[in-house]
Design a protein around this nucleic acid. Structure first.
Lengths: 209, 209
DNA sequence: AACATATTATACGAACCGGTACAAAATTCA
DNA sequence: TGAATTTTGTACCGGTTCGTATAATATGTT
C-alpha cells in the first residue's frame, strides 16, 4: 500500500519541515473537488477541505486556483488518453474494441467514491471554456487528439476489411466521439451506467454497420 | 420597434410607479449572462448589469438567483423544443430534415451578439446538475423529450421507406441526439459554425445510411 | 545546542456575494 | 391637492472568497 514502484524513495530528505501531504494525492483530491462542483463552484476552502492542506500550503505547492485547475485538467486528459490508447489497442473485433473504449470511459465517469461524476472535461471545462482561452485550448487539443486516435483505429479496421471499403473513417470517428460526448453528458444528467452501456451498444451497432 | 403584436397593450396601467423594464426582455438578458459564464460564474451584480435592473427589483420580479436560473432554463428548453418541432415537421427527404434540425440548433448556438454561446443546457446546466436535483430533473426531462421526438420522426421515415426496414429508430435517435451533443460541446470549445455543419453532414450521412 | 531551512497554521484584509431594510420616486385614485 | 400604491435606488448586513503576512513547527546542518 505504501511500497514504491521504483526505488522506494530513498531520496535524501530535504532540508526543512517535511510535507504533511503527498503532492500527487493532494492534486487528485483537488481534482475531485472541481469534478463535483465545477471550477466556479469550487472555492479554495473547498480545495483545502478536500486535500487537508490549508490555503497557504495549497498556494505554495500548486499555485493559485486557476493553475490548480489547469493541472487537474491536464492530468485528466493524460488519464483519458492512456485509457483510450489501451482500449483502442486491445484485441478483438471492431465492435468489441469500441465497447472496450466505452466501458473504459464509463469506468472513469463512474469512478467517484459515492456518486457519478461524468467526464471532467464535459462536466467542468466546457462551461469555463467560453471565457477562458487557456482552458478552451486545452479542451480543443484533447478533442482533436481523441478524434484522431479514433479515426486511425477506424481506418485500420476498414483496411482490415472490418468495415465496408467505402466507409468514411473521419465520419465514423466523429460518431464515435459524439457517442462518447452524449454518454458524458447523460452521465452527469443522472443516467445509470447500465443505461449508458446499452446506448453505447446501440451506437456501436450502427457505426460498425 | 415598439409596436405590439396583439392589442398594442391597451391594458389599463396598474396602480403604482411603472416598471422601468419589460419582464420578458430582462429575463432574456439575465439568461444571456448565465449563458456566458454559467450559473456559479454569474453573480447577482452580473445579472443586474445585464438587465439594467438593480438587485431588489430583480428579486421582486423574478425571485432569487436559483429561481431566475430555472426560469431561464425552462425558457431555453421551450425555445429548443419549438425550433426542433418546426425542423422535424419540415418537408423534404430525411437527410434534408435532419440537416434542418442541426442548422436550427446552430442558429441558437451561434445567436450571441458577439461570440458563440453553444447550448445553454450543455454549457451551463450540466455542470450544476450533479449537485442540484432540480436542475438535473429539468435537464433529463428535456433530453427525454428530444430523444422521443427524434425517434418518432425516424420511425415515420422507416415506415415511409426512407430507411431500411430493419433500421432501429431508437438507436438512430440516440445518434441524432449524440450528434447534437457533440456539436453543442464543440461549439463551446471554439469550433466554427462551418466546421460543425460539416460534422453534421457527415453524421447525417452515416445515420441515414 | 544554535542556526538555517522549509513547511504548517493562524489570522488578517480587501473585495465580493446574496439578500434585504428603508427611503425616494412615479404613478393612479379620490 | 393629497392619500394610496408600486417600483426604484441607496445603503447596509452577515458571510464568503481569494490572497497573503506573520508566527509557530519540524526537520537537517554545523
Amino acid at each position: 500500500m505504501h511500497g514504491g514502484t521504483k526505488m522506494d524513495k530513498i531520496e535524501k530528505r530535504p532540508r526543512g519541515r517535511p510535507r504533511a501531504y503527498e503532492p500527487e494525492v493532494a492534486l487528485r483530491q483537488a481534482a475531485d473537488a472541481f469534478w463535483k462542483a465545477g471550477y466556479s463552484g469550487t472555492s479554495l476552502d473547498d480545495l483545502s477541505a478536500a486535500t487537508g492542506m490549508n490555503r497557504p500550503s495549497l498556494r505554495a505547492a500548486f499555485g493559485d486556483k486557476h493553475t490548480i485547475y489547469l493541472r487537474a485538467l491536464a492530468d485528466y486528459w493524460g488519464l483519458k488518453f492512456a485509457v483510450m490508447k489501451v482500449a483502442l489497442a486491445s484485441p478483438g473485433t471492431l465492435p468489441e474494441v469500441l465497447m472496450r473504449v466505452y466501458d473504459s470511459a464509463l469506468d472513469i465517469y463512474f469512478s467517484g467514491d459515492e456518486h457519478v461524476r461524468g467526464c471532467f472535461v464535459v462536466g467542468t471545462a466546457i462551461t469555463e471554456a467560453l471565457g477562458d482561452p487557456e482552458i478552451q485550448d486545452v479542451v480543443t487539443g484533447g478533442f482533436r487528439k481523441l478524434d484522431a486516435d479514433f479515426e486511425t483505429r477506424l481506418r485500420e479496421a476498414r483496411d482490415a476489411g472490418e468495415l465496408k471499403k467505402d466507409a468514411d473513417p473521419e465520419a465514423l470517428a466523429m460518431l464515435v466521439s459524439a457517442t462518447m460526448h452524449t454518454i458524458a453528458i447523460r452521465a452527469r444528467a443522472g443516467a445509470s451506467r447500465a443505461e449508458l452501456r446499452k446506448l453505447a451498444q446501440k451506437a456501436v451497432g450502427v457505426i460498425t454497420g
